[in-house]
Design a protein around this nucleic acid. Sequence first.
RNA 1: GCGGGGAUGCCGGAGCGGUCAAACGGGACAGACUCAAGAUCUGUUGGCUUAGUGCCUUCGGAGGUUCGAAUCCUCUUCCCCGCACCA
Length: 836
Amino acid sequence: MIKKNSKKNMKNSEKSKTEIDFSAMEQKWQKRWERDKVFEAEEDKGKKFYVLEMYPYPSGSGLHIGHAFNYVIGDILARFKRMKGFNVLHPMGYDSFGLPAENAAIKSKSHPRIFTDEAISNFIRQQISLGLTYDWRRKLQSHDPEYYRWNQFFFLEFLKKGLVYRKKSSVNWCKDCSTVLANEQVHQGFCWRHNSTPVEVKQLEQWFLKTTAYADELLKCVDGLNWPERIKAMQRNWIGKSEGSEVIFEVNGQNWEVFTTRADTLMGVTFLVVSAQHPKLDQLVTKDKRKEVDDFLKKLRSTKQEDIDQMEKEGVFTGSYAKHPLIGEKIPIWVGNFVVADYGSGMVMAVPAHDQRDFEFAKKYGLPIKEVVMPVEGRKIENRLIKAFTEYGKLINSSKFDGLDSLGARKKITDELARVKKGRSSIQYKLRDWLVSRQRYWGTPIPIVYCDDCGAVSVPEKDLPVLLPEKVKFGEGNPLATSKEFLETKCPKCGNKARRETDTMDTFFDSSWYYLRFTDNMNKKEPFSKKKAAYWMPVDFYVGGAEHACMHLIYARFFTKALRDFGYLNFDEPFPRLYNQGMIHGEDWHVMSKSIGNVVDPLDASSKYGVDALRMFLVSMASPDKDTNWNQNGLESVSKLIKSMVHYAHTVKFGNSSKRIESKIHSTLKSVSEQIEGLKYNSAVIQIRALFESFEPEISKKDFQIFLKMISPFCPHLAEELWEKIGGKGFISLAEWPKVDEGKIDLKLEEAEKAVEKTVSDIINVLNLVKEKQGKEAEKVYLYVIPNEIEGYDSTILSRRVNKEVVVYAVNDKQKYDPSGKAGKSKPGKPGIYVE
RNA sequence: GCGGGGAUGCCGGAGCGGUCAAACGGGACAGACUCAAGAUCUGUUGGCUUAGUGCCUUCGGAGGUUCGAAUCCUCUUCCCCGCACCA
């Protein structure tokens, strides 16, 4: 704060002639790039490279620093690859359907479309000002009928192929969103948008996408992805494969299945527990237990979700018994609060000796505990179990399976079950089918018509898109249901009166294939041409935040696999390489938030210091995948660097580069190229800085051009401006990335320079010592250099560096001044020093 | 509980078997310039020591592998992030 003010007061001092108007310069180049269609990409022009940043939800508040960071990371690589000769596709679009726009519109009594269009144009303006190299012709927005018609098309396509179905089931409902949610949108029992709104369970008939059909492939392919480990882990976890067995227990002549991963403990089952939410629970409850069970269920219902999570395992006996599939024993069935209804079959076999939950339950209700797995050798067995033994071991008390180890027993027992038709091996996934219906307005209408005679009928393809009606009433349940002209229609099959589906699609449907539409966004006949998609896809580099690990990234992978199987695509994974940018926190290390007041507005920052400074600074703080905190001084420092580059460009004398500079240019070029490729932008910036600082007043134009090319991905406007100033041809953005000339890299020279650096610090060290020892400062420095190294030691440069007059002698110089014989100390790479 | 990622000097952060007391930036301190401030430039910023040297202690902690470890292995503590009564 203080700094800012004092700065203002100090302004006005002098405007050096090399100072440039950054804002004017930026606009000049942004306009030219647009005018000359510099970043427009066409198919089949050599080797392609597809860079994509996750398309944003166009919020009313505009770009924040995280957006800017996200785009700059992608843009630097896009620019680099383009200069490297790749045919780069770098598009941008808007995930423009969704609740926030609808809610904002309701609040401001506007219309979501108006609200959204405004937000998008605001976004575009801001993105252009960041110097991002998008091919704007390819812009897409999900709320555009030309886009969402293909959502509808795919929905019907999936329906035809059996990947879409409609089912009544328990679904998650968020009262603040007034809509249902997909499993992926429920985070720890709460709505992903409202983290203090617990989701409610409702029984509703809804549309589902059969993501589980691809569960196994989605899981398998995770291994081969070049993605951050944690995202891969999250996906594996989310898909949650477990291998085990299905066991059939007979209850009153009916088969009830349970899933277990520990079939080896089957002989230790002492009771079964059915979920309190199990749809067929009633069938198990006997008359005399009815009241007890009802009381239990009532109590559960009145308990809040948060409390249920903390709650102790509880349950009541249902009154029914099951028959053990192998030994026919009578096993009591309990209803319990800890059994998840929609995993497995909603019922579990309880082996208290070998499962901690079952153990606690058995202890609490005095149910028998039967040990069937003996701990492995070397483990002491307590006479009484104090907790379940959940590891593997040798079987006991298991009749003919005694003596087998757990793994072997699992197989043997499952085989035995299969033989007597009481079970089989089975695989369970945690992944659920994707619930795509939403009871909201601002989304893609689901292209279905309900007819009393024909049932749910698909809207014929020729009638697509089913347009979202403009006029609806908000706040009275599902808005689409309030539009008569939308609602009332004719059955495509029989022509009788029919009613349209009033639910819209989850907006994750939109984002599941937008990357494909970018390859061919103008196509009116099909969602995209197979040929174009085959050329551009997959996305070579995908950048975004980690928050989509288990939503967008799963859905998009599912879409790709399904579309591949329908013949649209010829690859398995849409994003072979994913990069997560880190979070930028406020200067105080808190997450940026308006209430704390530590928000940095990217445009504010760039208007003060220039966009190029912002771009360069954003990627120089740390490796871009690390969380960091903003540092205003750091930004200023980059801006100073840029200013001194401008100054240099205006004062440099073009002639010949010294061998030293040539060597440095090429060794820097070599590492910078590698670093950009490897996303080590921070290291690249350091190298560039060091190179610049070593520049001499004279340099060859060619070398300076190489330098400009190196900075152009980071500081594109400045690079263009200086490129033009020194007479570079065309746009530097399209210039060829320079080739490293290994022959110019002179390691000996670089070593010699290091030796000089060392000598400088030696001199300084000696000067300090002398000052300390003798109490007075020496005035002159004498250097005795080995004759063949003498050209490396320039007395002017040295004098400037040590701030003293430096006299350089060759050791064999007869005329040299050397009162204490320091010349004798000279060694190769290490001149003798005398000061006085 | 399960899974993933971390812990480096005042701060941020590179490094991931030797060239490491550890790049680079910020901050702080000192000096030059200046009437002065800012800007700029130069230096210092683990400890002791020394005419440019040498040594010691450092990269969360404890062990280990190695001629040699911030870097590899084992254990451990702490932090962050996901999932979580998943049978």
